[in-house]
Write a protein that binds this DNA or RNA. Structure first.
Length: 117
DNA sequence: AGCATGACGAACA
DNA sequence: GTGTTCGCCATGC
């Protein structure tokens, strides 16, 4: 078969999606935290890239993933730029100027919550 | 093949 | 605290 897409990243992508799905409602995490949990903290960009492709899947709460500053950098990648903030606010996350308030309070660290792999 | 870009992050000035 | 630079690696031209 034409396994032109048989890259090792496929597993990496799936791992990212799995972690994102585990993010509790009303909580958020960062690209770096996910990358760190997957043992690739130096490749936080790949997590971002994985999220870009996550639109092909439906059960990926991509709105719960922000950068380490709690900034909604990925909002422009949703159908509606307002979608990300709206979904978060519906879950009780306060946002002002694309910035999550009390970020440390709603931050969900997979390595801490799920335990070290 | 090289060069630019990107939903990031850390280091440095 | 802000702005710049570098590392990461996949994708597009």
């Amino acid at each position: 078969m034409s396994n032109t897409l048989s890259n090792p990243n496929k597993d990496f992508f799936q791992n990212v999606y799995e972690v994102v799905r585990l993010i509790p409602k009303g909580r958020v995490t960062s690209y770096g935290a996910i990358a760190n949990y997957l043992g690739a903290k130096q490749s936080a960009r790949m997590v971002g890239w994985a999220m870009n492709a996550s639109h092909r899947y439906k059960d990926i709460p991509a709105h719960r993933v922000v950068n380490r500053n709690g900034l909604l950098t990925g909002k422009h990648h949703f159908d509606e730029p307002n979608q990300m903030q709206l979904l978060l606010e519906l879950e009780g996350v306060k946002i002002v100027q694309n910035k999550i308030q009390q970020f440390e309070k709603v931050f969900w660290d997979p390595e801490k919550e799920l335990g070290l792999p």
